[in-house]
Write a protein that binds this DNA or RNA. Structure first.
Lengths: 209, 209, 209, 209
DNA sequence: CTATAAACGAGACGGTACGTCCAGTCTTGCT
DNA sequence: AGCAAGACTGGACGTACCGTCTCGTTTATAG
C-alpha cells in the first residue's frame, strides 16, 4: 500500500511529506540569485542549495532540471503592478508603457525581463511559461483598453488590436534596449503613445479634436 | 630587439607571426557552433579549439574572453541583405521588415538574433558590438527612407524618426516572439507598416490620397 | 506507567513489541549480502533495509551502528563443524586444520574469515566478537587435544599449548594467504602438522616410535 | 605526430609532462592519511586531493582507482629494516620475528600490516602487490637463514623451508592478533622460535648437542 | 471499548563523496 | 615568438548513502 488516507479523505503518498519550507527557500534562493544578475545558464544548483540551506537532493527530488525550477520560481512572481485604468485611452496606454519601463529599471523585475529575453530557443519551456505569466495577462489588459477606445470612438473602429499592442510594447522594449543613449528617458512612454496614435502619415488640414 | 623590419619597411614583432589560418578556423568554428544552436553561455572554448583543430592557448592568446571572440566572429558576418530601396516609402519599409523577418527564420542569422537578444547585462560588450554591427546600419538606412518620405510629403513633416523606427522594428520583433501563433505570418510586415502609417486615431472623413 | 505485566510475570515496556520477524529478516539480509561478497565497509544500511523489506529506522532502532549489526549477525552463525575427535593427536590436529582450510574455501564461511581478518583497528568490536565466537571455541577444542597428547606421552610434557596452537593455526592461515601458489594444496594440513610435530632441529639417530 | 624527440633520443608524449611534484604529494598525502588510521575503504580521493593540494582530476589521470593508488603508495615504502644476520640460526630467526613484532607496534608500519591483512578478495591487486613488496623479500631472507642452518647441521637436512617459514611467521601474526592478552609480550619471538625448533614431540633421552 | 504508547513502512531531510566534465592557465618541444 | 598538445587547479554536475526526522498505520496492553 503506497498511499495513506487522511481525515479529509485525500489520498497522500506514504512517508514523510515534502517540506513546504524547503520549497519556499529554494524558490526564494533561486529568485535572489537571478535578481543578483546571475543568468539562467550561470545559475548553479549547488549555489541555490547553498543559499537555500538545503541539500542538492532536495532540489533534484522536486525538479529534474534547472529550467523547470526557474519556471516555477517565475510562476511565484505575480504580475507586480496590475494596470490601473479608467482614464482616457492615451493615459492608460502611457501608464501601461510606464509600468514596462519601470520594470526594466528595478531589480527583480529586470532580471525576469532578462530571462524572458534570453535565448528562447534553448529554454523553450521557460519562454512559454513567461508568455503565460507575464505577456498574456498584459496583452489582455491592454486589449481591453484598446477595445474600449474603439467603442468610444477615441480610436479607429477598424484598429488591429494585436498589431497596436505589438507596436506599443515593441517600441518600448526596442527603445529601452537600442536607443542611442542608454540613459533613462522619462517621457518615452508619452512619445511612443503619441507617435503611435498619430500614425506616420500627415493628416489633412484638420485640427485635432 | 623586439621588432623586425620587413622589406616594405613596416615594423613587426619578432618571432613566428600569428597564423591567419588559425584565426580563420577559430572564427569559423565559433560561427558553426553558434549556428548549431549553441548559446553564448554554453559555448565552450574547448569545443571551439577542438572544432578548429587548434590549441586552447591559441585562442586565449588572441582573445582574453569568450565574449570578445564572439564579438569578432559576429563582425565577420556582413549585413547579409543590404536594404534595396527606391520604391514608395511604404514599400521600402515593408521590405525592411521582411528582411528582419527572414533573418529570424534562417539558421545562422537567427542565432545572431538570439545572441543579440540574450541578456545584454551579462554580455555588455556583445550587445554594444551588435548595436554597431547590426542595429546602427539599419537604423541609418531606414532613417534615410523615412526622411525621404518626409521630404516628399508622403510622411508627416514632424515625424519623430527614432520613434518611428522603434515602432516598426519593435513591433516586428515583438510579434515574432510573442504573437499567439508561433507560425509564420507572411503578411506581418505589411500589416505592421500599414497600421503604423495610419496611426490609431480615426481620420476625419477625408479620403486617403 | 511505562511497563506492562505479562502472564509470566516478566515486566515489559508498553507499546507495540518489536517484531521478531523484522529482527530475523534484517540479520538474514545482512548475512546474505555479506555472503555475496559485500565487505563490511561496502555494506550499506540502505541495502540491508531494502533486502529485508524493512524501514531504515527499524534497523537503527536496534543497532546504533553497522558493526553492532554485523556482530550480531555473525553471532547467529554457529561454529559449523565442531571438531570430531578421538583418533591420534596427529589425526585430530590434521582434521582441525582441514576444517579451517575448508572454511576458507566455502562461501559464507570465507566471507566471515574475511571480515575477521579485516582491519581490526577500525572495527574493534567486530574483532572482539569474532574472537569470542570463532577463535576461543576452537582454541579450547584444540587445547584439549594437545593436553590429551601430553598426558598420553604422544607430545612433550612441557609443550606450550598456546604457542603450539599459534604455530598450527598461524601456519595454516599464512600458507593459505601467502603461499607461492594460490591454488589449493590438499595435503597442507598434514604437512603443517608433521613439520610442527618434528620440530626444526635434527633428531639424534633414534628411530621414531 | 603524437610524440616528440628529446636530445637523448627518447621519445616522449606531446604536451606538458606530468608533474613529479604532484606525483609525490599525492603519494605522500595518501600515506599520511593511511598512517592516521584511515582505512582503505574510508580513504576518500577527495581528502587525498585536498591534503595534497591537487585537483581530483590529477589523481584520476594517474590512477583509475583507489587500489592502484594505494598500491603505488605502498611501493614507495622500502622494507624499513632489512634483516641483520650472521649469528646462530636461532638468533637470526628471533631477530626476524622481532622485526615483524615491532612493525605491528609502530605507526606507519602497522597501517601497512592492516592494509595487507584487509580483505584480500575485495582488494586483490593490493594483496598481490603487498606480497611482492613485503612478503617475498622477507621470505627470501629467512629462507637463506634456514638453508644455512641446514648446511651447518643446526637444522634438519630435510626441513621444509616454506613450511618452517609459514610456522614462524604465521605464529607471530596469529599471536599478535588473537592471543588472550592484547598487551605486548616481549619474549614472544623467543618462545615461538624455541617451540618451533624443538617440535611438539618428546625427544628420546638424548642430551641436546 | 477505548486510550495510550511504541514500533512499523515509507520516504524526505541536510550532508559527504563519488567520478566526470570543462574553464582558464601553464609548460613542454617543435616550427 | 607562435604553435598543438596536454597537464594543471578548481568547481559544478547528477547519483548514492549516510544517519535523522516526520508522516499515518498497526499492534499491543491498561483502564
Amino acid at each position: 500500500m503506497k498511499t495513506q488516507q487522511t481525515a479529509e479523505g485525500v489520498a497522500r503518498p506514504a512517508g514523510r511529506p515534502r517540506s513546504e519550507k524547503a520549497d519556499r527557500s529554494i524558490i526564494e534562493a533561486t529568485l535572489e540569485l537571478l535578481g543578483e544578475g546571475i543568468g539562467v545558464s550561470e545559475l548553479s544548483i549547488e549555489s541555490i542549495a547553498g543559499r537555500a540551506g538545503v541539500g542538492k537532493t532536495t532540489i533534484y527530488r522536486r525538479w529534474s532540471n534547472k529550467e523547470d525550477l526557474v519556471v516555477d520560481a517565475l510562476a511565484t512572481l505575480k504580475p507586480p503592478i496590475p494596470l490601473p485604468q479608467g482614464g482616457t485611452v492615451r493615459d492608460d496606454l502611457v501608464t501601461y508603457l510606464r509600468v514596462i519601463q519601470e520594470e526594466s529599471r528595478h531589480h527583480r523585475t529586470r532580471c525576469i525581463m532578462n530571462i524572458a529575453m534570453s535565448d528562447s530557443e534553448r529554454h523553450p519551456r521557460l519562454a512559454e511559461r513567461f508568455r503565460e505569466l507575464a505577456v498574456e495577462p498584459r496583452r489582455a489588459v491592454v486589449a481591453a483598453v484598446l477595445r474600449r477606445g474603439m467603442e468610444t470612438g477615441e480610436l479607429r473602429a477598424d484598429l488591429d488590436v494585436d498589431m497596436a499592442l505589438a507596436l506599443l510594447s515593441g517600441a518600448m522594449i526596442w527603445s529601452t534596449k537600442w536607443s542611442h543613449s542608454g540613459d533613462h528617458q522619462a517621457d518615452l512612454p508619452e512619445r511612443i503613445v503619441d507617435e503611435a496614435l498619430k500614425g506616420f502619415r500627415p493628416r489633412p488640414s484638420t485640427p485635432e479634436p
